[in-house]
Amino acid sequence: MAVPDFQTIMYPFLEVIKDGQIYSLDQMVEMLSVHFSLNSDDLRERIPSGKQPLFRNRVGWSRSYLDKAGLIITPSRGHYQITELGKQALNDATLSYINIAFLRRFEAFQQWESTFNSEGSNDLTGSTVIEEIQAETPDVIIGKATENLHKSLKYELLQLLKSKTPDFFERFVVELLAKMGYGGVDASNFEVVGQSNDGGIDGIIYQDHLRIEKIYVQAKKWDSTKVSPKDIRDFIGALNLKGTTKGVFITTSTFTNEALNAANQNPHNKIVLIDSDRLLELAIQFNVGIQTKKIIEIKEIDNDFFED
């Protein structure tokens, strides 16, 4: 048979791991290829770039969408396990097929998909998208796809950061600032100091080898609580106790308008505020917790070459 599309793979994907064990991607590809009775020719078929087998690629996309809905988890890289939510879905006697429309029942998937809805509907399976693709030029299609991948990456990165410990987030922040060039290239110019009695300081950037010039860092790993003006004033107070006016306040949340104003009230203070969106953009730009999956070259005719 022909290689099935990624939505057709999703229900069998859950079925073969319903025992709750952890399976690798190679095991999933093998078990699912047996389920769909794929022959050697089917398994040799590759995606247009030629860099990956088509079936393996579609199994990967199925995994990604099931994960977004919370039906599976990835306990380690390239390994998958069904969740209680996934088991509950399989217990539905009327269910025999899973597609994106079904995944929209789950809050986690709704939250993920909402990241694409800033410019109207984005039904990933409906006729609207097909009509848009047919009406757009390839450059526009590639641009929109790239934008959606970028939004999805930011969403996944934020969820990962929120799932980690405060200590991990503090180390992440210091690593990011190091990649951005603060403190030079010497790793000893950075120090994570966040403790229960840190006085509002989680990290220190030493701007010179004698450690005279310092920038202090506050890292707040919050889910939804916005940073208040009191938090900013407390941070400024902690800076004053250290004898400095330079600080960077970074959060996985956002700042209230009053907090933004509090940071700018004193012109002598140099307080930089970085909210979740800016944090994610910087992490992606400087490849902290991020890796490049592939680079695509788009070529065009060199008209100058052909001119007389």
Score class of each variant (00 low, 15 high):
160 L>G: 12
146 T>N: 12
32 L>V: 09
275 D>V: 01
185 V>W: 10
195 Q>K: 11
274 I>K: 10
278 R>T: 13
231 D>S: 12
90 L>I: 06
250 I>L: 05
13 F>N: 00
156 E>K: 12
176 L>G: 09
285 Q>A: 13
256 T>I: 01
52 Q>R: 12
190 F>K: 10
252 T>Q: 05
36 F>L: 02
244 T>Q: 08
84 E>K: 12
266 N>E: 11
104 R>A: 09
2 A>V: 07
281 E>H: 06
233 R>S: 12
219 A>H: 08
200 G>M: 07
28 M>N: 03
195 Q>F: 04
247 G>C: 06
94 T>F: 10
237 G>Y: 03
232 I>Q: 02
78 G>M: 01
31 M>E: 14
58 R>E: 02
222 W>Q: 03
270 K>Y: 02
273 L>G: 11
304 D>W: 06
222 W>V: 04
87 K>D: 08
217 V>N: 04
207 Q>P: 00
119 E>N: 13
266 N>A: 06
108 A>V: 03
303 N>A: 05
126 G>L: 00
216 Y>C: 02
28 M>P: 01
191 E>Y: 02
230 K>L: 10
224 S>V: 07
15 E>C: 01
32 L>C: 06
133 I>W: 11
127 S>D: 10
94 T>I: 09
95 L>N: 08
22 I>A: 12
166 P>G: 06
61 W>K: 15
31 M>A: 10
207 Q>R: 12
203 G>D: 06
197 N>T: 11
1 M>D: 11
176 L>F: 08
228 S>Q: 12
305 F>T: 11
166 P>E: 10
218 Q>V: 08
99 N>S: 08
286 F>W: 13
261 N>P: 00
20 G>F: 05
9 I>K: 02
90 L>Q: 06
262 A>D: 05
89 A>S: 09
28 M>S: 03
246 K>Q: 12
130 I>T: 15
162 K>I: 11
277 D>L: 03
154 K>H: 08
173 V>T: 15
207 Q>T: 09
280 L>M: 15
219 A>T: 04
305 F>C: 09
295 I>E: 15
110 Q>L: 05
164 K>C: 05
115 T>A: 10
108 A>R: 15
260 L>V: 14
99 N>Q: 02
185 V>E: 15
269 N>M: 13
198 D>F: 03
158 L>G: 05
296 I>E: 11
260 L>K: 15
14 L>G: 06
307 E>P: 00
273 L>Q: 14
4 P>Y: 04
58 R>I: 04
197 N>H: 09
157 L>N: 06
160 L>C: 07
208 D>R: 07
56 R>M: 03
265 Q>A: 15
173 V>S: 14
65 Y>P: 01
299 K>M: 07
104 R>D: 14
68 K>F: 04
57 N>G: 08
222 W>S: 01
48 P>F: 03
253 S>E: 02
237 G>N: 14
285 Q>L: 07
85 L>M: 08
218 Q>G: 05
156 E>Y: 04
4 P>R: 06
16 V>A: 00
222 W>A: 01
29 V>G: 08
214 K>H: 03
81 Q>D: 02
86 G>M: 00
24 S>L: 02
259 A>T: 03
154 K>S: 02
43 L>Q: 10
195 Q>V: 07
150 H>V: 01
254 T>F: 04
134 Q>L: 12
257 N>Y: 02
200 G>Y: 11
91 N>Y: 08
77 R>G: 06
231 D>L: 01
66 L>S: 03
178 A>S: 15
